[in-house]
């Protein structure tokens, strides 16, 4: 029997009674918004709880929302997977866009090591407690964090190329 969504919600709310979680069913995956300061406790619980057993960290990545208020501008998204019941869960932790920092989970999941390095490399998120937080895909000398929305794809000074039809427009008009 598959793990019920209600069961996950009840268990999380009962264990972390001081936190009010925001649950949202996003298509086939249950998404949970969690407070960033409790992230490692929650992930450890999800991993080790004998019923929930989200033992596999599928993915970890960052998302930048520059239009949000400052303390919700950066999001770290965790995808966890329970192979026994074949259930996935998505955790979202919102953190500040100005000085983004969050606890590292690389001691819980060794695989998070490079994923966190990648997120640091592209978004400048400081993962506290990471054993070797340095750039991974870009060169060490780089000073900017290129996946942030304010970083242009191409040199803005170029006049030989008009790419405006392919950029982002608010209303698609």
């Amino acid at each position: 029997m598959a793990l019920e969504t209600a069961q996950i919600q009840d268990k999380l709310s009962a264990t972390f009674s001081d936190i009010s979680f925001t649950f949202k069913q996003e298509r086939d995956i249950l998404a949970v918004e969690v407070p960033a300061e409790k992230i490692s406790a929650i992930i450890l619980f999800l991993k080790n709880d004998p019923e929930l057993r989200f033992h596999f960290l599928t993915d970890l990545c960052g998302v930048h929302y520059p239009d949000n208020e400052v303390d919700r501008q950066m999001t770290i998204v965790y995808h966890m997977h329970n192979w026994y019941e074949n259930t996935r869960i998505r955790l979202k932790a919102f953190i500040s866009g100005e000085n983004p920092e969050i606890k590292s989970i690389s001691s819980i999941f060794p695989t998070a090591n490079w994923m966190e390095r990648e997120t640091y490399d592209f978004y400048g998120v400081d993962f506290i407690g990471h054993p070797q937080l340095k750039r991974i895909l870009n060169m060490d000398e780089m000073v900017s964090f290129p996946m942030r929305k304010e970083f242009p794809l191409e040199d803005g000074g170029r006049t030989d190329k008009d790419d405006r039809f392919f950029g982002r427009t608010a209303s698609n008009n």
């Binding site: 993915d59 998302v63 930048h64 392919f166 950029g167 982002r168 698609n172």
Partner: peptide, 9 residues
């Protein structure tokens, strides 16, 4: 809702 992904990982 725009013509490009907001984020693709």
């Amino acid at each position: 809702g725009s013509r490009t992904p907001y984020r693709l990982h």
